[in-house]
C-alpha cells in the first residue's frame, strides 16, 4: 500500500543521523526517540541525543521472504544491535565479507533502503556494517 512520504520525512533526522533522545529526569537513552520516557511518564524531560552508531549484534536473521516493498532487496540481514550508549535498535546489517553473528561489532553506515516503484522516491536510512 502506498503511503504519503510525509510519515517518513517527519523522522528524517533520526533515519539519516541516528538522532534519538535522552530523558533528563532519569538518564534513559532512546533510539528511536520517544515523546514520553517509558520510565518517567508525565515527568519525562526529553532532549535530543545523537548516537555514534557503534555497537554489537545482539541477534541476527536473514530475511528471504520480504514484504512487497523489499522484493528487489531480498535476501538481507536484519539485526538487533546493542548500541554502546545502551539502546537496542533493529536495522539492516550490510554484507562485507565478515559473517554477521551474535557478538559481531558493527558501525553506522548510510545506505539506500528501498525504491518506491519504478519511478517513485528512493528511501535512505542508517544501516550497520560489521567491523
Amino acid at each position: 500500500m502506498e503511503r504519503s512520504s510525509s510519515s517518513l520525512w517527519r523522522k528524517i533526522r533520526s533515519r539519516y543521523d541516528l538522532v534519538g533522545n535522552e530523558c533528563k529526569n532519569c538518564g534513559s537513552n532512546y533510539f528511536p526517540p520517544r515523546v514520553v520516557c517509558r520510565k518517567c511518564g508525565r515527568k519525562s524531560k526529553m532532549v535530543e541525543k545523537k548516537f555514534a552508531g557503534d555497537g554489537e549484534i545482539y541477534s541476527i536473521t536473514r530475511i528471504r521472504v520480504p514484504p512487497d516493498t523489499f522484493k528487489d532487496e531480498a535476501p538481507y540481514f536484519i539485526g538487533v544491535i546493542k548500541l554502546k550508549e545502551g539502546p537496542m535498535v533493529e536495522g539492516h546489517v550490510l554484507e562485507n565479507g565478515i559473517e554477521p553473528k551474535i557478538g559481531t561489532k558493527v558501525r553506522l553506515r548510510f545506505r539506500k533502503m528501498y525504491v518506491e516503484g519504478d519511478e517513485g522516491l528512493i528511501y535512505y536510512q542508517y544501516k550497520f556494517e560489521p567491523v
Binding site: 510519515s7 517518513l8 523522522k11 528511536p32 545482539y58 541477534s59 541476527i60 536473521t61 530475511i63 521472504v65 520480504p66 514484504p67 516493498t69 523489499f70 532487496e73 531480498a74 538481507y76 536484519i78 539485526g79 538487533v80 533493529e90 536495522g91 539492516h92 551474535i102 533502503m113 528501498y114 536510512q125
Partner: peptide, 24 residues
C-alpha cells in the same frame, strides 16, 4: 510500522530474532 515494517522486518523475521537469541 515506522521502525520495523518500514525496514522490511517481517513477522517471521521478528520471531527469528527471538529464536536466534534463544538458541544462543
Amino acid at each position: 510500522q515506522e521502525w520495523e515494517l518500514f525496514q522490511g522486518i517481517t513477522f517471521p523475521g521478528l520471531y527469528a530474532l527471538m529464536a536466534k537469541r534463544h538458541m544462543y
